[in-house]
Amino acid sequence: MEIERAGEILAVIALDPSRVSGGAPIFFAENNEQQFAVALILARILGGTVHDLENGVCVVTRH
């Protein structure tokens, strides 16, 4: 049986390097504003959606 993933994390944009590791490409930002600016650009490039994990990390996913 083929398993289809509902969503996929394409990129992780974080403020604090100690909170993230492994897996998807990780981008770091200086502050909140820059974090969401980077997230928006990545989302538009990749055709994804920005989700805020509310712990200083946000991810770009494709559904």
Partner: peptide, 20 residues
């Protein structure tokens, strides 16, 4: 509620961007 879109009692999805 922060970045969660809530309709009635239901958490619909998470919208990360403030503009959205």
């Amino acid at each position: 509620e922060n970045s969660m879109l809530v309709v009635g009692p239901k958490y619909m999805t998470n919208i990360g961007l403030a503009e959205a």
